[in-house]
Design a binder for these strands. Structure first.
Length: 560
RNA sequence: UGGGGUAUAGCCAAGUUGGUAAGGCAGCGGGUUUUGAUCCCGUCAUUCCCAGGUUCGAGUCCUGGUACCCCAGCCA
């Protein structure tokens, strides 16, 4: 399931065909063009894997380019986080980090070129009037009264726009295409608008900023992009993309191709909604482990490889789809199962006293770090008279399907001895606070030879020495929403109404094996029989904090 | 409502000139197991949104429907 060969998809077929026809001198150049107005999420990962993956497998190049044409929404914090996330995923962009804002001079020249060709004009109607004149699905638009200004007048007006002589909203530069087109983006689209706001890259150099539709194709051309891959909603923008490439004297002829974006159920992947979750404090920040952001997944314990495999296994098509969250979870299990060292951690401690074990005796038992991979080595764990086991691993009575410790029956302490539960100790409230047991000294690495039920134990449970165990805190995460499609809720409801109140459960007083003392944040383990966990950066002097990435697969009869 | 798209299993998805439905995940059955995990084996679409048509033969071609998605920012 891991290193699947790049599967056939329509993008690769287009590239194969282009290569066969000798287009672009055999070059394949793609780009990942995020707008720095939020953190990257799992949906971006699909685009990143596609763009970088395609470039890589064709010996081409992939650029990282910030599509930063709107100073109102963008911030440097996002520029930093996006680069960090792309690097974390393990991709290397070709050349420097690029910015659409780095092309503002050239873009301005292209705009003047359009004006000179009579293909663009300055419209001084109000924004409301422009919207009104655009018409709608059924009504064709009407020409602006300023549509036929002379080239000279347009040049002068555009220069005034640039000089700051107009206020925001007083003038825009529009392409002169067709106000009656059934494709609304062709009804004289706005190319430049006035924004008197400092830009994070260009400072106060500009007061006019190019629109995405104008900037993107030309940036692609400037960079020599051959295949400009974007999501489906840009499809009706393609005629404009092509129109600009056709009517301007550009150094290359990039082509745009659209694919379906990734949708995951039980979460949201729109920057607007993610930002709201952060801003209103429903989560702990962009990197809250419940967030589908790359930084959230990272903090949750996801590995770059697991996310890349997940994306590669999805395929690329033009059909709208919703991927099941369980596929993402399966991808990280697959990776961590192979690569995460094992450890013991008791989540809900219950004291087990081995009555025939001498008070001060401690025996260090060797256990592999990975049962199927000896190369990972082993560790030692101290067994003492008092150990902790999980409350859920003991019952006073149970049927045969319950493969754990039952009063009067035996179970194996994993990598240790077989014990038999003899009695329980209760507190005043009648709650069991301790289980008393006996152990069979002749069962280390072998089954009991001599008595009832030869061979197999009822089960195997994990444990941690009460004297040596490290107290820790464990955070159990569940899906953030309790409906499959939070973005689509009933009239009058908000997606926030469907936040899962139990998406985070914090377990205090857990006990982990001593060897994990001081391990750094982001170290990942499989806590045997529990799941995959990751050390959180909140760990410190007062103990380790673990985030549960995902549980182990569970398939046992619920009637047990 | 005009335009642009998309329909193949529970979820993705391949299917290139029409030649008899890949693969993954999930499910189900079994085996191994000192993790109820992993691993292994087997099984899982007489049918491709629907209805007609062409053809010896249609997921692929034709005709007519249906459902869903996107577009009316000086956002990207």
């Amino acid at each position: 399931m891991s290193e699947a060969k790049a599967p056939s998809n329509f993008i690769r077929q287009i590239i194969d065909r282009d290569l066969a026809e000798g287009k672009n001198d055999g070059r394949v150049v793609t780009r990942f063009p995020p707008e720095p107005n939020g953190y990257l999420h799992i949906g971006h990962a699909k685009s990143i894997c596609l763009n970088f993956g395609v470039a890589e497998s064709y010996g081409g190049a992939c650029h990282l380019r910030f599509d930063d044409t709107n100073p109102e929404k963008e911030e440097d914090e996002y520029i930093q986080s996006i680069q960090r996330d792309v690097e974390w995923l393990g991709f290397e962009w070709a050349g420097p980090v690029r910015f659409a804002s780095g092309y503002f001079d050239q873009l301005h020249d292209y705009a003047v070129q359009l004006i000179e060709k009579g293909l663009a004009y300055v419209d001084t109607q109000s924004p409301e009037k422009i919207a009104e004149m655009r018409g709608n699905f059924t009504t064709p638009g009407q020409d602006s009264p300023f549509r036929d200004r002379s080239v000279e007048e347009n040049k002068a007006l555009f220069a005034k726009m640039r000089a700051g002589d107009f206020d925001e909203g007083e003038a825009v530069l529009r392409a002169r295409i067709d106000m009656t087109s059934p494709n609304l983006t062709l009804r004289d689209p706005v190319l430049y608008r006035i924004r008197k706001k400092a830009h994070h890259q260009t400072g106060d150099k500009w007061v006019i900023y190019p629109m995405y539709d104008f900037t993107h194709p030309l940036s692609d051309a400037i960079e020599g992009i051959t295949h400009s891959l974007c999501t489906l909603e840009f499809e009706e923008h393609r005629p404009l993309y092509d129109w600009l490439i056709e009517h301007l004297d550009v150094p290359a002829e990039p082509r745009q191709y659209e694919f379906a974006r990734l949708n995951l159920n039980f979460t949201v992947t729109s920057k607007r909604r993610l930002k709201l979750l952060v801003d209103e404090g429903h989560v702990d920040g962009w990197d809250d482990p419940r967030m589908p952001t790359l930084s959230g997944l990272r903090r949750r314990g996801y590995t770059p490889a697991s996310i890349r495999n997940f994306c590669d296994n999805l395929g690329v098509s033009r059909a709208d789809s919703v991927i099941d969250m369980s596929l993402l979870e399966e991808a990280v299990r697959d990776d961590l199962n192979q690569n995460a060292p094992r450890a013991f951690c008791v989540l809900k401690p219950l004291k087990l006293v081995i009555e025939n074990w001498p008070e001060d005796q401690e025996e260090w038992l060797r256990a592999p770090l990975h049962p199927q991979n000896e190369a990972m080595g082993s560790r030692e764990m101290p067994l003492t008279r008092e150990v902790y086991i999980d409350r859920e691993d003991f019952r006073e009575e149970a049927n045969k399907k319950y493969k754990r410790l039952v009063l009067g029956d035996r179970v194996r302490l994993r990598y240790g001895y077989v014990v038999r539960a003899e009695s329980v100790v209760r507190d005043d409230a009648g709650e069991i606070v301790e289980v008393r047991c006996s152990y069979d000294p002749d069962t280390l690495g072998k089954n009991p030879q001599n008595d009832e039920g030869q061979g197999k134990m009822r089960g195997v449970i994990h444990w941690v020495s009460a004297r040596h165990g490290l107290p820790c805190r464990v955070r159990l995460y569940d899906r953030l929403f309790d409906v499959a499609n939070p973005a689509r809720v009933a009239e009058g409801e908000s997606f926030l109404d469907h936040l899962n109140p139990d998406s985070l459960r914090v377990l205090e007083g857990c006990v982990v094996e001593p060897r994990l003392d001081g391990v750094p944040a982001e170290t990942r383990y499989q806590f045997e029989r529990e799941g995959y966990f990751c050390v959180d950066r909140d760990s410190g002097a007062d103990g380790l904090v673990f985030n549960r990435t995902v549980g182990l697969r569970e398939s046992w009869p619920r009637e047990a």
